[in-house]
């Protein structure tokens, strides 16, 4: 990466990549890949001081935390999950209106006695006694879950990291409940799960985020000012 430029991290895959490119084109900062088509570098045609880095959405969050990129587009869920003290280390410049997903706590639909976190806490305590182990929560959001449960007084549980097909874990009996993203709830229902009434952890969407830890150079400051003023005009 070029040392003195402003580095903008954008998603390298899928819908999020396309929507992010559309967004920047719409606000007048279209970027294109530089060099090989399969490469991971790009440039903004209208702003010379910017280098575009194509990264995975989770990497963007980590790079923002460490200050390896100045700006990045990624889901708020990943920002809050991967960055401790996200509000101190980063600044959300804009919410982009796509990539919407809710991070929720979901339990089997057959748990007719459980519809709130308070119910869950009681059921979990009973489960702990009955099975001599804690209720397992499958999730890729280890930190978000831990924080949410601590704030809401749920303690008789144990997190199990799940990196895919989280909704299937209760049926497969590798976990009892899950914390996962949902947009319409269809996948939850298809897996015989239901969301708890007060189980909404985060309403997430794609965000343009600035790192407070990234090195500041004359070129990066100039590019940042240009981008900020573009954002103000868009609003």
């Amino acid at each position: 990466m070029t040392a003195d430029k402003l580095i903008l991290g954008v998603p390298s895959k899928g819908r999020l990549m396309e929507q992010t490119a559309d967004y920047f084109a719409r606000i007048g900062l279209p970027y294109v890949k530089v060099g090989h088509d399969r490469g991971y570098r790009g440039a903004v045609e209208t702003l010379a001081g910017v280098e575009v880095a194509y990264l995975s959405a989770a990497e963007i969050a980590r790079h923002l935390q460490l200050g390896r990129i100045h700006l990045g587009v990624t889901g708020e869920d990943l920002i809050r999950e991967h960055i401790a003290d996200a509000d101190e280390r980063c600044e959300i410049l804009a919410r982009l209106g796509f990539g919407r997903a809710d991070v929720v706590v979901a339990v089997p639909e057959c748990w007719i006695d459980v519809s709130t976190i308070a119910d869950l806490e009681e059921a979990a305590a009973l489960f702990h006694r009955e099975h001599a182990r804690r209720l397992r929560v499958a999730t890729k959001y280890m930190n978000l879950s831990r924080r949410f449960f601590a704030e809401n007084g749920l303690t008789s549980y144990r997190l199990v990291e799940s990196l895919g097909a989280t909704e299937g874990t209760p049926a497969a009996q590798t976990a009892e409940i899950i914390v996962d993203i949902t947009t319409t709830g269809t996948t939850l229902r298809a897996n015989d799960l239901k969301m708890l009434e007060d189980g909404l952890i985060l309403k997430s969407e794609a965000c343009l985020v600035a790192s407070r830890a990234a090195p500041s150079t004359a070129a990066s400051r100039e590019a940042m000012a240009a981008i900020r003023s573009t954002l103000v005009q868009v609003e």
């Binding site: 089997p108 639909e109 057959c110 009955e130 009996q173």
Partner: peptide
């Protein structure tokens, strides 16, 4: 009774928490 209720409402029983536990809490 709980099993019959689940059946009547088309709710599939999944996971390690059993119907006995649900009944106990109810």
């Amino acid at each position: 009774h709980v099993a019959a209720y689940l059946d009547a409402h088309g709710l599939t029983i999944i996971g390690a928490r059993n119907i006995g536990e649900i009944a106990t809490r109810l």
